[in-house]
């Protein structure tokens, strides 16, 4: 019998692919990418910072989708997708905040800028999803947890939208969106990529790498959650079976 595992051909391939991409990313971020004229060496932190927000956004969006589909179809699959994605999102949001703080210390001279709406709204988003994870561990029935966290998962997307548009809505010192689709479409590469395209190439590579990692973690986390749910059901069935045997034995002894 094979060793019990949440791996499959898909995850093993994805994991190996990630390791290969990570090797490439280390080369790109540390050697290929030049230091930035303004940010100097701390631009390399961006290759962690930007991919983290990409994964966190995607994960929280998945939580939203999963929550909607759970409410619509009452499907346990989507409920567990939402729960697993929220965990991945919080994980990468942690990386995002810490890399951002280190970058801020190097570039602005402070860890935390109280006048930066994007930073503050990200912190709020982070706490909202930590609350979501707390809710998943409440002492309620599985259905109640799924229902309530679906509502929080749907409302939580509001904070993601605020974070995304914070720079546009409140002009601030936070960097403009680094990869602006409008700028890319018109071929102007102002801002961070003004000097050369090496920053852009490295960033895109890093995003692909982090996405692979996020997906790999998500699949494994989902499978663990799925097994946990099944285990809980088996436990209930076993308990019922045990009571049946007890009562059968009791009735037998009466005769």
């Amino acid at each position: 019998m094979a060793k019990p595992s949440t791996s499959s051909k898909f995850t093993i391939t994805l994991g190996l692919l990630f390791l290969a991409w990570l090797t490439g990313m280390l080369f790109l971020a540390l050697i290929y990418s030049p230091a930035h004229p303004e940010q100097q060496e701390s631009v390399r932190l961006m290759y962690i910072h930007l991919p983290s927000i990409a994964v966190a956004y995607t994960a929280f969006f998945l939580t939203f989708i999963g929550s909607v589909l759970y409410l619509a179809k009452k499907s346990i699959f989507w409920d567990l997708v939402a729960a697993s994605a929220a965990e991945i999102g919080v994980l990468f949001c942690t990386v995002l905040l810490f890399s951002g703080m280190l970058w801020g210390k190097k570039t602005w001279g402070i860890y935390w800028d109280w006048e930066d709406p994007q930073l503050l709204s990200t912190a709020v988003m982070y706490v909202v999803y930590i609350g979501y994870l707390g809710l998943r561990r409440m002492d309620l029935t599985a259905e109640a947890i799924s229902l309530r966290s679906a509502i929080v998962g749907i409302l939580g997307i509001g904070t993601v939208i605020v974070v995304h548009y914070a720079v546009k809505w409140w002009r601030s010192g936070h960097q403009d969106r680094t990869i602006d689709p409008e700028k890319l479409a018109t071929g102007t590469t102002e801002g961070i990529f003004q000097i050369n395209d090496r920053y852009l190439f490295t960033t895109v590579w890093a995003i692909a790498t982090f996405m692979a990692l996020g997906l790999w973690l998500l699949v494994h986390r989902f499978r663990v959650a799925w097994l946990e749910r099944q285990l809980a059901e088996i436990d209930v069935e076993e308990a019922i079976e045990l009571r049946r045997q007890e009562s059968a034995a009791y009735i037998g002894s009466e005769r």
Binding site: V127, L135, M138
Partner: peptide, 8 residues
Amino acid sequence: FVPLLILP
């Protein structure tokens, strides 16, 4: 738990 949910 409620403060954790409500404060943000």
